[in-house]
Write a protein that binds this DNA or RNA. Sequence first.
DNA 1: TTCGATCTTCACGATTTCTTCATAAAGGCC
DNA 2: GGCCTTTATGAAGAAATCGTGAAGATCGAA
Lengths: 227, 227
Amino acid sequence: MNILIVDDDSELLEQLQRGLERKQYRIETAENGEKALDKIFEITYDLILLDIMLPRMDGLSVLRHMRQAGLNTPVLMLTARGDVEDRVKGLDYGADDYLAKPFSMAELMARIRALLRRDGKRNTVLTAGPLSLNTISRTVTLDNVPVSLTSKEFSILEFLLHNKGSAVSRFNMAEHVWGNEFDPFSMSNFVDVHIKNLRKKITANGGKNAAIIRTIRGIGFIIDDAP
Amino acid sequence: MNILIVDDDSELLEQLQRGLERKQYRIETAENGEKALDKIFEITYDLILLDIMLPRMDGLSVLRHMRQAGLNTPVLMLTARGDVEDRVKGLDYGADDYLAKPFSMAELMARIRALLRRDGKRNTVLTAGPLSLNTISRTVTLDNVPVSLTSKEFSILEFLLHNKGSAVSRFNMAEHVWGNEFDPFSMSNFVDVHIKNLRKKITANGGKNAAIIRTIRGIGFIIDDAP
DNA sequence: TTCGATCTTCACGATTTCTTCATAAAGGCC
DNA sequence: GGCCTTTATGAAGAAATCGTGAAGATCGAA
């Protein structure tokens, strides 16, 4: 799960990042509205924590821009305690929930879980043939037998399943899984290596399940839509 | 998605091209109005980014010409900041949106998405007779039987189908499929070779489907519009 | 800090794909 | 039918891509 946190209070930012990373979320941050928007259009996030008060374009504008562009990523607004007006505006603009500062980490976690769990659109269980992946518990099973994946392997498989039926380029994959740590000019084949290891694991029981992840030469990989 | 970018600032052109290609768009460029118009009438684009200030025929004229000819490809105008007048004229002439320079990549992405989303879901499945090509999953079927194509073969077929009903020159084809790597002075017949292989593959089942791709002597190739 | 797991980098072989080239076939024009 | 231009084709060498094992780097928990 990729989460973008947008806040100009760098201390709070760090604190949130640490706390959420501990829960296995992939975190990226932005400390002003412009940078936030840049990132939002660049990478697909599963959730955005958006402070209202921001330098260089406030949170509401960011929200308006992204909704106008048709992005329906869930947004959790962070507002100062009294700002009833902003809060209402935010919900009007398409925010999904809000949280008044100061808040407890526990409260935040609860809201995040709720938003991520929500709408059946974001399915928590993704499948392909005998393969099943649960995004909440971060577990994978093959023919109902648990398979143990590393963090990167899991993210890659999750991304492929999330885009089941469409060819995914190495570039997109890297962008999504590695986020801003991804060096677009890297000549390494780290994606291929992870794919190899992933295939090995989902073929462990001897079947020919490696074919679940199909290579598209010159492009990347795909998990076919089940017929 | 095919996008044509028309701008005389070669630096900006390159920058936009790189950024958009990274997002899986297929980009072609033109640095003046005449060349732009040539291309627009030759090839079907999904979107055109059109600078107003251009040498050898300004953007507004280009726009007027193409609209007069009945082409309703979405056009996103790029204007200098102050040019309210041109902007209004542009919208009058049938531009779909405008963006004032200088703009951020994020903003541009947002507008592009909005425009492409607009006229309904873009067609991801292109067909011609028994032939069907899915641009998302990058698969091709002939009489519902999967056909395995190489990367170049796929791109060529996609391009032909995208321009179904109009003849496509070797030059345009090469320019589009090979992009920057295309050497306009090459004397090789690599396009013909790929066409040959392509025909062979879509004739595999014994039918006379090779005729789907028809040669136009002196020009190039065409896939006819279904009657 | 140490140790084990995970991640990244690298080099190489197997395979596929692309390009080039020579020649054959086909089309158009007189 | 000849003659010239354009297109089709087969084959071969060049280039690119993918999968893989293994070594080193990095991370994280004890």
